[in-house]
């Protein structure tokens, strides 16, 4: 193929590059600056090399936060993906009820993160919250402010409440794209309900489910606002996830060097995992089109 090479086209993306430089690259560079230097204020910096990175990589505190973070993401994915699919399978396919259910399902997605946190913070309180008070009234010992397990349950239930809709909506879109003939053929072939799911619905939903898993993984891995509002990372450090730990370190203790090194590694981890997902998805697409 003969294509005219015209590198002048690169100039057309220049405005975007400038904008991105100002909005993303420059702020990121200040983080890089903090990560490799030590400062005592007054804009004086002393070269620290990889010292902060070493400190962070070997920090027990970070390891624990990372462990909690991975556990949290794993649990919410294990709940939200199957639950979302289950909801999507049972949603009406068309008509008035389909529209109504779609709106109801979407509602949690429209609520700002800190409002979600506040809702559950109040909802779970033993003294005035509907949930907490009810549980106490029927004799269940529940208190998210001083019991780590209760705090975890609250944070997970809150995330499931907030985000299962996203998985459900994506799965629903995938289901809607399956032509009726597939279901008819399955009936003719005397397939069981499970076979219909396994061989028709699941393969057709695969693409959107991968996107759902990617989005839910990234969001849950970076979660900050909601658990911060509800538990503040406690009791103790039991719900201190990576972002919360990072914010404590940077703005609470003002350890800018370690926090910056931590940020960079955190960013790289998310970038790496997203790249893995992206590669898997594009490979699946290729396989599909082969």
């Amino acid at each position: 193929m003969d294509k005219t090479q015209n590198n002048k086209a690169w100039f057309l993306v220049l405005p975007v590059l400038v904008l991105v430089a100002i909005s993303a690259v420059l702020p990121l560079m200040t983080v890089v600056n903090y990560a490799f230097n030590d400062t005592f204020g007054n804009n004086e910096f002393f070269w620290a090399g990889l010292e902060w990175f070493e400190e962070m990589v070997t920090s027990d505190r970070l390891h624990e936060a990372l462990g909690r973070q991975i556990l949290f993401s794993a649990i919410i994915l294990a709940i939200e993906v199957p639950l979302g699919i289950l909801i999507a399978l049972n949603m009406p396919k068309s008509g008035f009820w389909a529209s109504l259910v779609l709106i109801l399902i979407s509602l949690p997605l429209l609520i700002p993160f800190n409002v979600v946190g506040t809702i559950w913070q109040i909802f779970g309180r033993v003294d005035i919250g509907l949930l907490g008070h009810t549980l106490a009234a029927i004799g269940i010992d529940y208190n998210y402010t001083n019991d780590a397990i209760d705090a975890w349950i609250t944070v997970i239930v809150m995330d499931v409440w907030h985000w299962t809709s996203l998985v459900a909506l994506l799965a629903y879109a995938g289901l809607q794209s399956i032509p009726q003939a597939y279901y008819q053929a399955a009936k003719i072939d005397q397939a069981t309900r499970w076979s219909v799911f396994r061989y028709i619905e699941l393969p057709k939903m695969k693409g959107v489910l991968l996107i759902a898993i990617l989005l839910r993984f990234m969001d849950s891995f970076m979660i900050y606002t909601e658990p911060f509002v509800v538990t503040g990372g406690g009791p103790g450090n039991s719900t201190t996830f990576l972002s919360i730990d990072l914010a404590k370190m940077a703005t609470g203790q003002f350890d800018l060097g370690p926090a910056a090194a931590f940020s960079l590694m955190y960013f790289c981890v998310i970038l790496l995992i997203s790249w893995v997902f992206y590669t898997v998805m594009t490979n699946l697409d290729r396989e599909e089109n082969r």
Partner: peptide, 10 residues
């Protein structure tokens, strides 16, 4: 048994 107008395969 029924065969449809457009192919349906698993």
């Amino acid at each position: 048994a029924q065969v449809f107008q457009f192919p349906v395969v698993y």
